[in-house]
Simulated scan of single mutants.
Amino acid sequence: MFNRTVFAAAHVVATDERTVDWDATLKFRHHLWSHGLGVAEAMDTAQRGMGLDWPTAAELIRRSAAEKAGRICAGVATDHLTGEPSLDDVLKAYLDQLDVVQEAGAQPVLMCSRQLAACAKGPEDYEKVYGTLLDNVSEPVILHWLGTAFDPKLAGYWGAKEVDRATDAFLEIIAARPDKVDGVKVSLLDANHEIGLRRRLPPGVRCYTGDDFNYPELIAGDEHGHSDALLGIFDPIAPVAAKALAKLAEGDTDEFHRIMAPTVPLSRHLFSTPTYYYKTGVVFLAWLAGHQERFLLLGGLESARGVEHLAEAKRLAEIAGVIDPDFAERRWQQWLASR
């Protein structure tokens, strides 16, 4: 159906600040699969590290993988660690989560680790950890580089504060074991950097754009190649994105851009500073679209964005064609009246 490999990073549906609504959460994954998108499970969009703890994430991964009706990948991190762990502790934590994801039958996504960023002394420590992880995977994995806009605690990742030096270190890890890397997800919100990195990847290693500001041009690509996608914005815009991607597969790039264009202002608004609160807008739109009965997030994160921000998200979502205006307006008015 598509000529790009695409994943939507999926949110979780909450019944209260601490509890996942499993039926609604899994139903939403089937919604994504029904449009031909893969599901990226237990990632940043699912409030990983911002309300979703590892035991619940592990259950989420197992449940989603057991029901998979399309591609599924899932986040491997170290977020169950406490205190000030050592490098060996970080490696063991990664390996423990890797076992869960591989046993569930999902493709692993090696996420950035706050704990690794805190204890690593330089690029050699990242090489030690990631090299060992790649030696222990049963299938090629996706490496995830999450920028500080999404998580300020990841400053200096790959052992360097300068992006160019960090990129060199990142590419050295990939070049040492290219057969173990399906692709890299880059979430730095810098299209020029992503294009430059994409052109330096070993043959056969994909670049999955995580740029929620510039995704249409990166997915469309240029004469030197294109990006595939693993995007949080594909959660609320799945039906529209699927139509656009189908046109791209038919060779109609102009129509791809025409369909995608109205989603970009929406995405840039949802991911505006502070970017890590974008989950609030994603869940808000899922509620306005009728995918869940309550506008709630784990940890009470629904309060992270104000009324004006949400009102603009609603307006832009209507323009992008991702919600029904009449249904959304009724829910919006009911929510305003209940405040």
Score class of each variant (00 low, 15 high):
residue 61 I to N: 04
residue 97 Q to E: 15
residue 65 A to I: 14
residue 87 L to R: 08
residue 73 C to I: 08
residue 105 G to M: 11
residue 24 A to D: 13
residue 57 A to Q: 06
residue 74 A to Y: 01
residue 33 W to M: 12
residue 49 G to D: 06
residue 47 Q to D: 11
residue 129 V to M: 05
residue 29 R to I: 01
residue 96 D to P: 00
residue 80 H to C: 03
residue 136 N to V: 09
residue 85 P to D: 07
residue 18 R to Y: 08
residue 57 A to H: 06
residue 120 A to M: 15
residue 38 G to D: 10
residue 131 G to Q: 08
residue 30 H to M: 02
residue 37 L to A: 03
residue 93 A to E: 10
residue 18 R to C: 02
residue 64 S to V: 12
residue 84 E to M: 08
residue 143 L to N: 07
residue 102 Q to M: 13
residue 62 R to Y: 04
residue 137 V to H: 02
residue 112 C to V: 01
residue 128 K to S: 11
residue 81 L to Q: 04
residue 62 R to E: 01
residue 135 D to Y: 05
residue 73 C to A: 14
residue 88 D to P: 04
residue 29 R to C: 14
residue 110 L to A: 00
residue 53 D to C: 09
residue 89 D to E: 08
residue 136 N to G: 04
residue 67 E to H: 05
residue 101 V to G: 02
residue 65 A to G: 14
residue 86 S to C: 08
residue 131 G to M: 07
residue 29 R to T: 10
residue 121 K to P: 05
residue 142 I to V: 15
residue 127 E to F: 08
residue 116 L to S: 02
residue 26 L to S: 03
residue 141 V to R: 00
residue 76 V to M: 03
residue 126 Y to V: 07
residue 81 L to H: 01
residue 117 A to H: 14
residue 68 K to I: 09
residue 120 A to F: 14
residue 122 G to L: 09
residue 108 P to S: 07
residue 24 A to E: 15
residue 16 D to A: 09
residue 105 G to C: 08
residue 117 A to L: 14
residue 119 C to F: 03
residue 25 T to G: 14
residue 77 A to D: 12
residue 94 Y to S: 05
residue 105 G to T: 12
residue 94 Y to R: 07
residue 35 H to A: 13
residue 72 I to K: 04
residue 37 L to P: 11
residue 63 R to I: 05
residue 23 D to L: 10
residue 90 V to N: 00
residue 78 T to L: 10
residue 106 A to V: 11
residue 116 L to V: 09
residue 95 L to R: 09
residue 114 R to I: 15
residue 104 A to N: 03
residue 53 D to T: 03
residue 43 M to Y: 04
residue 79 D to S: 13
residue 65 A to L: 12
residue 76 V to H: 00
residue 132 T to W: 02
residue 88 D to T: 07
residue 119 C to I: 14
residue 23 D to S: 14
residue 26 L to R: 03
residue 43 M to S: 06
residue 141 V to P: 00
residue 18 R to W: 13
residue 39 V to W: 03
residue 80 H to S: 07
residue 105 G to A: 11
residue 46 A to M: 08
residue 45 T to H: 00
residue 55 P to D: 03
residue 108 P to T: 05
residue 121 K to T: 10
residue 27 K to Q: 12
residue 69 A to C: 06
residue 55 P to W: 05
residue 59 E to V: 06
residue 132 T to C: 12
residue 32 L to H: 03
residue 101 V to R: 01
residue 40 A to W: 14
residue 27 K to N: 13
residue 81 L to C: 12
residue 144 H to C: 13
residue 53 D to P: 07
residue 104 A to L: 07
residue 95 L to C: 13
residue 79 D to C: 05
residue 103 E to T: 15
residue 120 A to V: 12
residue 28 F to N: 02
residue 115 Q to T: 13
residue 78 T to I: 11
residue 66 A to T: 00
residue 84 E to R: 09
residue 123 P to A: 06
residue 92 K to M: 09
residue 138 S to A: 06
residue 137 V to L: 02
residue 66 A to Q: 10
residue 139 E to N: 01
residue 67 E to P: 02
residue 128 K to D: 04
residue 94 Y to W: 09
residue 89 D to V: 08
residue 50 M to P: 00
residue 101 V to Y: 04
residue 130 Y to H: 11
residue 60 L to V: 13
residue 112 C to M: 14
residue 16 D to S: 12
residue 25 T to E: 11
residue 112 C to Y: 03
residue 46 A to F: 09
residue 125 D to V: 07
residue 118 A to K: 15
residue 121 K to L: 10
residue 141 V to Q: 05
residue 75 G to W: 07
residue 75 G to F: 08
